[in-house]
């Protein structure tokens, strides 16, 4: 059975979806990802969907769910590389993915996660002398 690999990059998890996501696969991804966040104590999850060309309301909901679930585990979710057609479809379906951060590509997504992490640590220690 297909499985979507979840890669660890420092304090973040990187998921690249290269195949069309069918319902079962999406559900597995959801549970695997939450498990992994719990195991590794990751502070951010980056999901790259630049290769996904077809999306339905179920998939939109799964993305929203993943974001909410990881937030409970103190990790932010960023969805990157959404295709224009996919964005239009989601909007027409009435899913604006509230609570999910978005970025244009993996690089900017990583920068966004790093920024959020820095901000968090800034708040945590009052010195604010963390490494750039």
């Amino acid at each position: 059975m297909d499985k979507i690999p979840i890669l660890r990059m420092g304090p973040f998890l990187l998921v690249t979806i290269q195949v069309d996501l069918y319902d079962r696969l999406a559900l597995n991804l959801e549970s695997d990802l939450v498990q992994k966040v719990h195991q590794t104590g990751a502070r951010g999850v980056l999901i790259d969907i630049s290769a996904v060309s077809i999306v339905d309301s179920f998939m939109g909901r799964i993305l929203g769910n993943i974001a909410s679930m990881t937030r409970v585990l103190d990790a932010e979710t960023v969805v990157v590389g959404m295709q224009p057609a996919v964005a239009i479809t989601l909007i027409e379906l009435g899913l604006s993915l509230k609570g999910v951060h978005t970025a244009l590509d993996v690089e900017r997504g990583m920068a966004l996660l790093q920024e959020k992490l820095d901000w968090d640590t800034d708040v945590a220690d009052d010195d604010g002398d963390n490494i750039e």
Binding site: M82, A87, R108
Partner: peptide
Amino acid sequence: IKTVSATRLMGA
């Protein structure tokens, strides 16, 4: 509003 939401989804 739709256009704005779609651009947000794209990450802009």
